[in-house]
Design a protein around this nucleic acid. Sequence first.
DNA 1: CGAGTATTGTACCGTTTGGTACAGTCGGGT
DNA 2: ACCCGACTGTACCAAACGGTACAATACTCG
Lengths: 184, 184
Amino acid sequence: MRRIAPDRVDLLAIVGEVFREHGYEGASLALIGAATGLGKGSLYHFFPGGKEEMAAAVIAHIDGWFEENVFLPLQNTADPHAGIERMLEATDSYFRSGRRVCLIGAFALDESRDLFAKAIKSYFGRWVAHLAEALTRSGHSPAKADELAEETVGAIQGALTLARAFDDTAVFSRALQRARAALG
Amino acid sequence: MRRIAPDRVDLLAIVGEVFREHGYEGASLALIGAATGLGKGSLYHFFPGGKEEMAAAVIAHIDGWFEENVFLPLQNTADPHAGIERMLEATDSYFRSGRRVCLIGAFALDESRDLFAKAIKSYFGRWVAHLAEALTRSGHSPAKADELAEETVGAIQGALTLARAFDDTAVFSRALQRARAALG
DNA sequence: CGAGTATTGTACCGTTTGGTACAGTCGGGT
DNA sequence: ACCCGACTGTACCAAACGGTACAATACTCG
């Protein structure tokens, strides 16, 4: 009982990496099986719903990580600036300074968005909303805070695309620096 | 002879839309055939290299459109501000105010990047470089111009992701408005 | 008209896809 | 020792995959 949960988390991390690198269509069960060392028997034991359930579970897992490490620091902290700084650090570390791509952002682009539209919208929506709330507490007008928050989350997503296109993590670091300056 | 060139352009536009909506892996020959009304015989007649050649041709076609309508206005225009405004208008119209996704940006994210890395890097590289050059001519220091250009192209890509995630074209329009303000 | 090329439809290839079935193995609890 | 549920490997399935072969048709031009 005690070992099941950690194992599943490890499993989700590995499966997530396959989806991240190959996209929803490109992540075949063969690839997932090779990456996890699990046969179809095990895979379908853990995810009876097949590939779609795997992707949904991965999204939920990522969502949970962001909820805890990125969104939570933005809320209810005495110092909103400190919370914003913590969210930027968590973002930098999650995306490995741009070496990693945003799975949920990638899913938003192709047709797999239709399958997970609700989760994708909720993920980005909470990111923007919590950042805007922190910015409001730090003194910005609600309208200005909304605008800044949307701009910042967009800049992060765009920087991930450019960093990957240029194969250059400095692009992502510069974007985070600019965000720091704009939000600070 | 005269009809071949326009037909091929139409064909590339249709095939491009299939890649744009389904991604490289998701765009099956069956889908491409259905969208174009062409059987495999015709498809392989026009693109003997198969799917990979189709995608390469689509990328080249898009690249050519941007070269002519987005990058060219940035160059050698007497008024750099007018050139920047024309590039933003062309961008807005190409992406249909955010309803459309950036094929090349989407390819940059998943594994298909490896196949087309050179073309992807060149496309974004020229976009940033030409914009930076226009900004330099409009009075910015080269360093500041580079930074602003990278930020703007990144903001456009990020806004496309967010617009698609939220299913809301207003996100993209706001990003272009901010770009206008920052570059103007 | 006829020759020759451009284009197309169809049947087919081997491989891989996501998914199922199920017999077996393993380990903890009684 | 036994049992029962969690787990796993293997064989299998129909469908779809990208790609090939080729005969038949359409088109152009002399």
